[in-house]
Design a protein around this nucleic acid. Structure first.
Lengths: 150, 150
DNA sequence: CCCGGTTTGTTGCACTTACAACTTTTAAGG
DNA sequence: CCTTAAAAGTTGTAAGTGCAACAAACCGGG
């Protein structure tokens, strides 16, 4: 016998968000996984370096809201694949500056194109107004600042 | 040196969705994990049974768009914890009908209350109009029907 | 009735992840 | 200086996940 309350799973934001996130990531995930053997965090590191240039592991972790152990292992594998280089900072030798190799940049460029196309396909499902509101709302919910959390 | 294109990670829907989903699930996840030792899929199974009554593993998997192996393992653990019962269908003995035990229902009731409160806190971050559009958009993106996929 | 094909669900294994503990380096105080 | 604390990453281990292979039950035609 079902519940007697009015709680609606189909209106519960964390549930809806997770469903939409998983579904919308799936196809693109398949591409970078099948073609380059990349995991999600590796893709994220690659894209941060490709879009924003040289960064440290910590900076990427902060920007992507990803735990440092995940970043650490992603960096390790990307370096193993020769997609990035790691250079110790001479001033602060705890830190390494990460950069794409030519090979890494070429992978990034290809994936960026695919991502852009894929994003277009997703966006086509929604009206421009919906998209605008959606992005604003997602930034509020996903941002590292404010909110009912902390 | 950063990219020369206009691709914007902060506007890429799968990225925004994943960030918002992870962040918005985190606190509630912590509750059902710490208080009842439940994993996400176990919570989902519990909520489906609590809200919609007796279901089979397959039906839950379809409704929640979750792979059958995850459902299978979640069901196993929920039964182990005595939160649900499993009853073979006499007509089709491949199938089991799953139901909450009194204990399971009590856990569900408590979590449902917490979820409702939590949802309120999330909703308070957005205007009613934003919420309306957001839910509509998320259902389009997360639904198992239509879309640019398949 | 029985053989191949489907459906429902489970399991083995390789792989990924989370969490805490750890190393190395830097910074701050006395 | 020397001690203690903090910051940046790394690693060990237990646990969860994905994928493919599997068993069991059903279904339909010959």
């Amino acid at each position: 016998m079902p519940s007697d309350s009015t709680f609606d799973l189909q209106a519960f934001l964390p549930y809806l968000l997770t469903q939409a996130a998983e579904r919308s990531s799936l196809e693109f995930h398949q591409v970078y996984k099948d073609r380059y053997g990349l995991l999600r965090t590796e893709w994220r590191v690659l894209f941060h370096l490709g879009l924003y240039g040289s960064m440290t592991a910590g900076a990427i972790g902060t920007a992507a809201q990803t735990h440092k152990t995940k970043i650490s292992r992603a960096v390790h594998r990307l370096a193993e694949k020769r997609y990035i280089t790691r250079n110790r900072d001479e001033k602060d030798r705890r830190v390494e500056h990460l950069d794409l190799t030519p090979r890494g940049r070429s992978v990034f460029n290809e994936l960026r194109g695919i991502a852009a196309d894929y994003d277009d396909a997703l966006n086509a499902q929604l009206s421009p107004q919906e998209l605008e509101v959606l992005r604003t709302a997602l930034r509020k919910l996903g941002g590292s600042d404010g909110g009912p959390f902390t």
